[in-house]
Design a protein around this nucleic acid. Structure first.
Lengths: 136, 136
DNA sequence: GCGAAAGTTGAAGTTAACGTAAACGTATGC
DNA sequence: GCATACGTTTACGTTAACTTCAACTTTCGC
């Protein structure tokens, strides 16, 4: 750990998030963050750690790394350009739509799982019945 | 189309779902379904069409094709083997947990998007204010 | 019955997201 | 003062899920 609690080594982050150091370096290679260096050793800030968290969340939601990068960049400080703000809002709307559809899919699949489990339980009960009858 | 309304050609399905015929053949190659044949031409049933739908939904939820295949097979008719039923239920539980976590992620990301959009709108309002002042 | 449209297989190429390996510097505890 | 752990770069390999291409055959509409 660092002297203050505000920086992390690459292996600390890899352990915390259950990914390899290679993965983290890969994320840097494609521009997801640019950690400070002491010599050639990387030093990760809390901001970097947060970005990593967002990337992994994005992955679980099926985003590509470039997509995650775009979303992360939206949260960055002021790019005051009006045009940029408008396109950012547009991007936000698109992502929201995507999430909305994903939510529908998720609900449907949950329902399917419920049905499947009930079916299984019914069959199990039936086979137990059969078994009991045999025994008597 | 077919004579009855219960079968589909490969191109009909590809059009309906916005994927290429080659993709559908790829799904067959890895065993996601095994359509009937008339000669060497594939004839898809309603069941095949449903499987395709489930695969695409799975993809949107970030499932791999083998994972989707496993889920599809769960819905298939009776594999009465008790042990199989139990492992199926176990699989269902795991998928449910996955979906549960995904739902959390989804909510968080929605909240983030709301916050980001509000930020953008605030900035836009601020820059409009600035602009007005300049004009006067 | 014939030409265009739609179907087929097989194989090689592509992209994203890392994994793996070699070859090397740095620091730290004993 | 040297092993051991951790760090680095460079470069090639791998896997999944397709895409692209070539070289056919089959089927439909007229």
């Amino acid at each position: 750990m660092s002297i203050d609690g505000n920086t992390y080594t690459i292996s600390e982050l890899s352990r915390e998030f259950g990914i390899t150091t290679r993965t983290i370096r890969h994320y840097e290679e494609i521009g997801l963050f640019t950690p400070q260096r002491r010599g050639q050793t990387r030093i990760f800030s809390n901001a970097d750690r947060t970005k990593l968290k967002l990337i992994l969340r994005g992955k679980r939601l099926g985003l590509s790394l470039p997509e995650s990068r775009d979303i992360i960049n939206m949260y960055e400080p002021g790019k005051n350009n009006t045009q940029q703000l408008l396109t950012t809002i547009e991007t936000i709307h698109q992502q929201r739509q995507r999430l909305q559809r994903q939510l529908e899919d998720l609900k449907k699949m949950m329902a399917d799982l419920d049905r499947a489990e009930n079916g299984c339980r019914a069959e199990l009960a039936a086979s137990r019945n059969l078994h009991d009858k045999k025994i008597r």
